[in-house]
Amino acid sequence: MSTTVDLSPISGPSAWRGDELSRSTEWIYLLNDAERAELEAAGRRFAADDPDLRTVTAADYPLDACAGLIGECARQMDSGRGFVLVRGLRTEEYGDTVAAAIFYVMGLHLGTPMAQNQHGDVLDHVIATSDKTLDDPTALPSRVRDRLPFHSDSSDVVALMCLRGARAGGASSLVSGTTIYNEILRRRPGLAHLLFEPWHWDWRRQDPDAPADTYTSPICSYVDGIFSTYAGSSMIFSAQDYPEVPRLTPEQIEVLHLFDEIAQEPGLPLDMDFQPGDVQWLLNYAALHSRTEYVDHPEPERRRHLLRLWLRRDVGRPLVPGFGKNVVKAHDEEKTWVPGGRFRIGEAAVPNYDWGL
């Protein structure tokens, strides 16, 4: 394993700019009739079978006609730009349960679903359940309408399916971690090396049951020619609340702010206006994600509503030891879940409106 970093610009398909991609549709995969028909049939069978979401496997629901679709999603995440948007599902015709079943079957063919909350739910929802803002420390980012900062999630892959869009706003925003790094290297080369050093991340805020207040991880990894990022400066800054954590240096604070500033610069992010049925597959190591602020429809049944999957995707991607939330993943395999999880597709397709109140 070679982890030598020579602090040179990183090239390749993961080093993209949003203003360039927005002029094309190369990042959108349009389903053909055979793929759509197979996914719809699999979703209806899945909904009828009603399997346990924790134990069902891809082999139980083969997708022969979709081999090209699954292969392209895998290729783009593993060695391409890091994401793909799949378009063409008619979710408004067959309702949320079948739509959720299709989404889950696709997920099974691209990784292993992970628990996303203390109940162990493996299918979660992004929907505003309160009028809180992110200034409120009790607010859940997935349950408010604020713009979110660019960040990485707790999984190898994060996937979203749009059931209903917002009245206004609510675009899904992605930005290339590779491009951010290249820009830092170009503008402040003396700070770039800090991204490869260990940082303390707030574990307690992410998981109240965590066995420690913090864990450590670099922001960037470069192993055997593969570049990866893991970002979320708010978790680094909040880790400073613990007295045992070393104080950030002025240079570290500067590079964190620079990272966030570059991520938001016009031209770098790609904003996607989700349509009902759109499915976004994203490798957390290749791109960061956020969303723009949005306004909901007044009717509760028309609220912006996305389904979310977190997947483990074990394809041997080389990473420096302890990169990202690997320690969190190991802890999740051992923890005891709070009763109340929803592990059948019919109930899992309905949001838990007790969250984020």
Rank of each mutant, 00 (worst) to 15 (best):
S154V: 14
S172L: 02
D153W: 09
S152K: 00
P149C: 03
C162R: 09
S130M: 05
R164S: 13
M161K: 08
S142D: 15
A171W: 01
L160Q: 07
R145G: 08
Q118T: 09
D153V: 11
D131W: 12
L110A: 09
G107T: 02
H109K: 10
S172N: 01
L160A: 08
R143E: 11
V122F: 00
S173A: 12
V126W: 10
D131R: 14
D153E: 10
T138G: 13
I127E: 12
L148N: 07
S130I: 11
S154F: 06
R167F: 07
R147G: 04
T129Y: 10
A166D: 07
K132Y: 14
G170T: 04
A139Q: 12
N117R: 00
D146S: 10
L108W: 08
L160Y: 10
V144A: 06
D131V: 14
D136K: 10
K132P: 15
R143Q: 15
S152W: 04
D135L: 15
T112K: 15
V126K: 03
L123A: 04
R164H: 12
D146W: 06
V122A: 00
A159Y: 02
S154N: 11
A115N: 09
H119Y: 11
V126R: 09
S152R: 01
G165V: 04
R164K: 13
R147K: 13
D135Y: 11
L123I: 01
H125M: 02
D121V: 00
S173I: 03
R145P: 10
P141R: 14
L110Y: 08
H119G: 09
S130N: 15
M114P: 00
S155Y: 05
M114T: 03
D146A: 11
L160R: 01
S152A: 11
T129D: 15
R167Q: 15
A171E: 14
S152V: 10
Q116A: 08
D153H: 08
Q116L: 09
A166C: 08
D124K: 02
D121Q: 07
V158F: 05
A139C: 10
L110T: 09
L134D: 04
P137I: 15
L108S: 07
D131K: 12
M161P: 00
P149V: 13
D121P: 00
C162Y: 05
G165H: 12
S155P: 01
R143T: 07
M161V: 02
V126L: 15
R147L: 05
V122C: 02
H125I: 03
H109M: 03
